[in-house]
Design a protein around this nucleic acid. Structure first.
Lengths: 151, 151
DNA sequence: GCTAGTTTGTTGATACGTCAGCAACACGTC
DNA sequence: GACGTGTTGCTGACGTATCAACAAACTAGC
């Protein structure tokens, strides 16, 4: 406890800017998706479902894909099912499983929201970066993400 | 709508890695603070309050500092007051205002949590970056954050 | 085929964030 | 000093996230 290595000025400035940047970016994306009648949680689920082949995805696989726990996913799926965006039915190969499939309305919702979403990501993020910065940020992000396996 | 500029492979890889990185980083920080009995929302408020001189801060200034709206702040303050981390009293200079002050327990809570928090930020983020990367990330973050003034 | 342990998905309780609306106050103008 | 306008903070309602507990179905080992 005695020897805490506090952040120096440059590190602290970076951490603070990074923290605030995330907040602004989230806000911008949430606002845009809200205009399309979706939350980020909705969109996070709709995208992998829209890209899945044929029968949709098992809840388990969807959970792994977006990194949620089963409980959160279950609640969110129930609400989205009630809104008519997707359907749940029994999984034929494993009776414990649930197969999630987009309804036509669900597919329409993603496809309607997607262009505006990409545009927002561009205007508030990607288009503000040089090619070198994109490379650096890819390297940084994957390194930090993959580091989380320990502790 | 017809001419949506979708993300190319490199951009998409970066955006996805960045998105996932944030989730992992948040988890790590939340877990550590939870061990100290605090949420990130608690900590976000406790830090500026602990650095404020004398009488504490007005709710308005605290809201500006962390970038929250008044409602969220009010709810959070009520909960933290009930837990004995801070007190609210009338602002002498402006009868509309509320003055927020840390209790000794509140101050103890930050000071206990801070070393572990910094250590977590280091292990999962700062210490994984080279000096050049820190500079790049500072530049990127401030640029993106300040861009949010429009739209 | 039986048992023990694991995986999968659901539920209810609780805490949190957001929104719309409200009441009290400040401050300028007339 | 009354009026209009903007500010400040609080509240109730609603949607969402997290946690613990549960039931059903699978799997491995015997």
């Amino acid at each position: 406890m005695a020897g805490t290595r506090w952040l120096d000025d440059g590190e602290a400035r970076m951490w603070r800017a990074f923290y605030e940047m995330r907040r602004h970016l989230d806000k911008a994306i949430e606002r845009q998706l809200a205009d399309a009648g979706l939350s980020t949680a909705d969109y996070d689920l709709l995208v992998p479902l829209s890209e899945a082949p044929g029968d949709g995805l098992r809840a388990r696989d969807l959970a792994n894909h977006v990194g949620w726990d089963r409980s959160r996913l279950s609640h969110q799926l129930r609400r989205m099912e009630q809104r008519g965006l997707l359907t749940r039915r029994e999984c034929p190969s494993d009776a414990r499983g649930t197969l999630i499939t987009l309804t036509p309305a669900g597919r329409r919702a993603v496809e309607t929201a997607a262009p505006g979403h990409v545009e927002t990501v561009r205007r508030h993020f990607v288009d503000l970066l040089s090619p070198e910065e994109i490379d650096t940020l890819t390297a940084i992000s994957t390194r930090i993400r993959d580091n989380a396996t320990d502790t």
